[in-house]
């Protein structure tokens, strides 16, 4: 039996493993401001996509008895529209990298993608 060993402290709550898992063994659900990712105890598919897809190397395979794991994350609300849009851990992962490219922390960091679209559109309209 091939078990799934997930390092909960490494997981940032992104969608990679659940998106890539074709037979849908790993599930991700967003309800309100909570994101739940549920991993099965084991997986017999001839596949290691989740392991390779994980941005933080949180997934490994092992042998022996495992148990199903459910991880919960808090989704941060968009500072404009209030819609929960990303886990705290995702933003903590993304922001330093973005800041490095952009040369400083961006002022849109609290906005969801839709509101960023909206803001950049308004910005362009003002500039006319």
């Amino acid at each position: 039996m091939r078990t799934l060993e997930v390092a909960g402290e490494k997981c940032i709550g992104c969608r990679a493993c659940s998106s890539i898992c074709a037979p849908l063994h790993i599930s991700l659900t967003d309800v309100g401001n909570r994101r739940t990712i549920a991993f099965p105890a084991s997986c017999e598919e001839d596949c290691d996509l989740c392991l390779r897809a994980c941005p933080t190397g949180a997934i490994a395979f092992g042998a022996g008895p495992g148990k199903p794991l459910t991880l919960e994350f808090e989704l941060i609300p968009c500072s404009k529209c209030g819609k929960p849009f990303a886990t705290r851990e995702e933003m903590a992962f993304v922001l330093p990298k973005v800041s490095k490219v952009l040369g400083g922390e961006p002022d849109w960091k609290g906005l969801c993608p839709e509101c960023r679209r909206e803001e950049s559109a308004s910005g362009l309209r003002v500039a006319i």
Partner: peptide
């Protein structure tokens, strides 16, 4: 693409979308 959604969160303009899994 793994569909992780991190690029969506990084784009300053909201110019990347997520189509279910990618």
């Amino acid at each position: 693409c793994t569909g992780c959604e991190l690029c969506l969160l990084a784009c300053p303009f909201g110019a990347i979308g997520l189509d279910g899994k990618r």
